[in-house]
């Protein structure tokens, strides 16, 4: 285990012991061209034989999936938002402004009245295949493993459903399936990419909102795309999860967003918990010593 194994930029496949692995593969999901068709959600289920997720009208705009779960490995978020376009922002000289904060509300709850422009954000969420994957780190059975492509996959024949990975993931991705008891999430179509195929969701995406490829190349592409968008006046475009020095050492699946991450249900600054694990063990060691010492003190002077 390298000095960076718990935190910081590394090549996860090499770190996991692969000798001369293939390039790290991942996703760049460009939400600025997502049309919310949910083809990715359906294609994923078709290919991976994921069961349906229940038939519940959520009222979260057109999102009736709600979030990623054991039974939804892609999730398309819909955010309805009053929005002051660039003109207003320029006039105010303050960059992008939002008129109102409807986001923790159901749609339409914003105060009625005259409004500026309006926008409808859509974003297809997925497992981030973190460089430092909280889920993988904490898995006690080795069911979760790092593939040669640097992705993170559950081996279903090993998982015993301890549920630790669920709490280990800083993005709330992996989940235990009811009735089945095991943990499930996106495999980055391990069974497809090994054969040189594109993952089902990316293949189905009509607008290339989901781009699959070598992570390095995707990062360059994404940087260019943000630049283009900025030139086109879309000042609010930003990347999320692309930096190698973020809290999880860089996401294997990263995003171009048009608003703050939390608006889409993403954590603004996730950190893999194992970053602090050595410190935690140290504290636990101290506490253990204190406990032992207390016992000794309790019985001290009573030699019989």
């Amino acid at each position: 285990m390298g000095s960076n194994s718990l935190y910081g930029p590394i090549d996860p496949a090499t770190d996991a012991g692969y000798v001369d692995p293939p390039p790290r593969m991942g996703f760049f999901t460009d939400t600025s061209v997502c049309i919310g068709c949910k083809a990715c959600e359906v294609a994923c289920k078709e290919w991976n034989l994921v069961p349906d997720d229940g038939f519940n009208l959520l009222g979260h705009s057109y999102d009736n999936t709600g979030g990623l779960s054991a039974n939804s490995w892609r999730h398309v978020a819909f955010v309805e938002q009053p929005f002051a376009g660039d003109a207003l922002a320029e006039a105010a000289g303050t960059g992008t402004q939002f008129l109102g904060m409807p986001l923790s509300d159901l749609p339409g709850k914003a105060t009625p009245g005259p409004r500026g422009d309006f926008r409808w954000l859509m974003m297809s969420n997925v497992c981030k295949h973190c460089t430092h994957a909280g889920c993988l780190d904490v898995c006690p059975t080795g069911a979760l493993f790092r593939t040669e492509f640097g992705t993170v996959v559950v081996q279903q024949d090993i998982c015993n459903g301890c549920g630790y990975c669920v709490s280990g993931c800083p993005y709330g991705v992996i989940d235990r399936r009811e009735g089945d008891g095991r943990a499930w999430k996106c495999t980055l179509c391990y069974d497809r990419i090994g054969d040189g195929l594109t993952p089902a969701c990316a293949k189905a995406c009509p607008t290339e909102s989901i781009q699959f490829g070598e992570l390095d190349e995707l990062r360059e592409r994404a940087a260019r795309r943000v630049e283009d968008l900025h030139e086109q006046g879309v000042a609010e475009a930003r990347l999320y999860g692309h930096e190698e020095d973020n809290g999880v050492g860089g996401d294997g699946a990263f995003f171009l967003l048009l608003d703050e991450p939390e608006v889409y249900g993403l954590p603004p600054d996730p950190v893999v918990a194992t970053r602090d694990l050595p410190r935690m063990w140290k504290r636990a060691g101290l506490a253990a010593l204190a406990m032992a010492a207390s016992a000794v003190v309790a019985f001290a002077g009573r030699r019989g």
Partner: peptide, 26 residues
């Protein structure tokens, strides 16, 4: 009893993983 697959409890003993407190704990 809290496992999703209790009959696979022994899978915990497949590995000893320092990054997993549950593994260490086991």
């Amino acid at each position: 009893i809290d496992l999703g697959r209790p009959e696979r409890f022994h899978h915990m003993l497949r590995v000893a993983k320092p990054t997993s407190p549950m593994s260490m704990g086991t």
